[in-house]
């Protein structure tokens, strides 16, 4: 796979504030202009875009699907304790092996916030995905060799940890990040707890997402083995460290 174009624009602090409950876009003009600039640099024209919302905007849930039950309907049923009316939830699932699925619920006003940015930037939207699911879809493609694989997916304000073996996801955790001092140690302890919950010694520990490379450096310095979830080959078209881009998982899936 080769990425034909890559462009990135920075936002000022606070322009976008990922939240599962409130509108995320604090400065529509700034975010709209940044999106339009990126689209123009890539020469997207009328190509429909897939919008990938950041981590921390959705509730995630690992489901064991009963036989002959629609996964999305079952997910809606299981999202009974959302902190907003169920009718406001936009729900979809990532089917995984073993009769399971990862379900996500996004509040409609949050979805609409991102859709408004895309429309204001003059782009046509194809789909809207969530970073956690996009990353997980790619990471689960490499199921490992029967050992427990623990994937850490880092976002700007939230992270997910997924434990799986043979491609069967057994534990999924999703939390807000605490980026104060000591985060590498806290995340490693969290990874060990997640492996314990999965009931197996940790085999491989992989990281993707915001700050993945610095986390790997910190863990290496402590003597904790871990690798990037993926690496970009020379000429792959990704100008930045691929491990910092969790949404690449959607392209790998």
């Amino acid at each position: 796979m080769r990425i034909r174009g890559f462009s990135r624009a920075s936002l000022s602090p606070g322009a976008l504030q990922p939240s599962a409950l409130e509108p995320n876009v604090a400065s529509l003009p700034e975010v709209r202009d940044a999106v339009a600039r990126v689209a123009a640099e890539l020469g997207l024209g009328r190509t429909a875009v897939t919008v990938v919302a950041p981590q921390g905007v959705a509730r995630l849930l690992l489901l064991e699907l009963p036989a002959d039950v629609d996964a999305v309907e079952f997910a809606r049923y299981r999202f009974a304790d959302l902190p907003y009316p169920a009718a406001e939830a936009v729900v979809d699932v990532l089917p995984v092996r073993g009769g399971r699925a990862v379900a996500a619920a996004m509040r409609r006003i949050v979805v609409e916030d991102y859709e408004a940015v895309v429309a204001a930037a003059g782009l046509e939207q194809d789909r809207l995905d969530i970073t956690s699911l996009a990353a997980l879809a790619g990471l689960l493609k490499d199921a490992g060799g029967g050992e427990l694989v623990l994937d850490v997916i880092l976002g700007d304000v939230a992270y997910a940890m997924a434990a799986h073996r043979g491609g069967v996801l057994s534990v999924l955790r999703h939390r807000r990040r605490d980026r104060r001092d000591g985060e590498p140690e806290r995340l490693h302890a969290e990874a060990e707890r997640t492996a314990a919950l999965a009931g197996a010694p940790m085999g491989r520990l992989r990281v993707v997402g915001t700050g993945a490379r610095s986390l790997l450096r910190a863990w290496t310095a402590e003597g904790w083995a871990a690798t990037a979830g993926w690496e970009a080959a020379e000429g792959a078209g990704v100008p930045r460290d691929a491990a910092e881009l969790p949404w690449l998982g959607a392209l790998l899936a």
Binding site: P54, R179, A250
Partner: peptide
Amino acid sequence: AGDVAALVVACALLSAAVY
């Protein structure tokens, strides 16, 4: 479609949101 464009919306890397 043969080509897919992914538009990733995220915080600026240096704008760590503090909740």
